[in-house]
Structures are given as structure tokens and as C-alpha cells.
């Protein structure tokens, strides 16, 4: 799975650093450094979730672009801006919803309202 590399995998390496931050660094610091340690742990959690999500989110994003007949987020943005989707903005939002939810699921899953 990780060839040609040896274990630990990318995720396992990040996990090891995250564990060290939580176990050794966080209890030993306070104030600003403590806050910044939590920020660092949170960023590593984001990367771990992104790695775990694999290709599925990319595929959902591609499917959204295809369904709206655009080539990229930039293309879609330009077309929304020029008024091309003015009569179907609600439909565009419906198409975008699963992609935005994917992004939040990786960056901050607790933010999703269903949870």
C-alpha cells in the first residue's frame, strides 16, 4: 500500500507526532504555547481525516462539476458571476451541498449541524 516506502505510512507518521504533542508537549506548556500546540494537533487531525477520506471526495467533486457542465470551481464561479446560473441558483446550491459537507467533514466534522 505504501510502496516503495516502509512503515510507518504517512498517516502513521503524522499520528506519532500528534501523540507526542498530546502526551509530552501539551501538559508541559501553558498560555500561548499551549494554544498553539492545540492548533498544531488540530491541523494534524485534519490531514489524518483527509488521508482517510481517500478518493471518494475527489470523485464527488468531479461529479458535481460534471452535473453543472463546468470544468473547475473557478469556471463555475465565473459562470455564476456572469449570471449564467441566475435562474437555477437553488439547484446549484443543492449540487454544491455534498461537496461543501465533505470539506467540513475533513476540516471540522463537529461543525456539521446534523451532529
Amino acid at each position: 500500500m505504501t510502496a516503495p516506502h516502509d512503515r510507518p505510512t504517512a498517516a502513521e507518521l503524522i499520528e506519532s507526532v500528534r501523540e507526542w504533542l498530546e502526551r509530552d508537549v501539551a501538559p508541559a506548556v501553558d498560555g500561548r504555547l499551549s494554544f498553539h500546540t492545540r492548533v498544531a494537533m488540530n491541523s494534524l487531525d485534519i490531514v489524518l481525516r483527509e488521508l482517510a477520506a481517500g478518493n471518494e471526495m475527489l470523485q464527488r467533486h468531479d461529479a458535481m462539476l460534471r452535473s453543472l457542465d463546468v470544468t473547475s470551481d473557478a469556471d463555475l464561479s465565473a459562470k455564476i458571476r456572469s449570471g449564467e446560473f441566475d435562474t437555477s441558483l437553488a439547484d446549484v446550491l443543492t449540487s454544491l451541498a455534498p461537496v461543501i459537507e465533505d470539506k467540513v467533514r475533513v476540516s471540522n466534522p463537529k461543525y456539521l449541524l446534523e451532529n
Binding site: 492548533v39 443543492t94 454544491l96 461543501i100 471540522n108
Partner: peptide, 27 residues
Amino acid sequence: SHELAAIGRRVCENEYDILTMLREVLV
């Protein structure tokens, strides 16, 4: 700054909230 870097991943929280609010008014 890793703190500023991390804020980049909060952009989508606002996309999510806008989406939620606009879906209530755009029907």
C-alpha cells in the same frame, strides 16, 4: 504561522453556513 495556515481550512465553515442560510431563502 501554522495558526494562520489552519484558518484556511475554516473557509468551508462559512461556505456551509451560507449554503444553509441561502437554501432557506432561495426556494
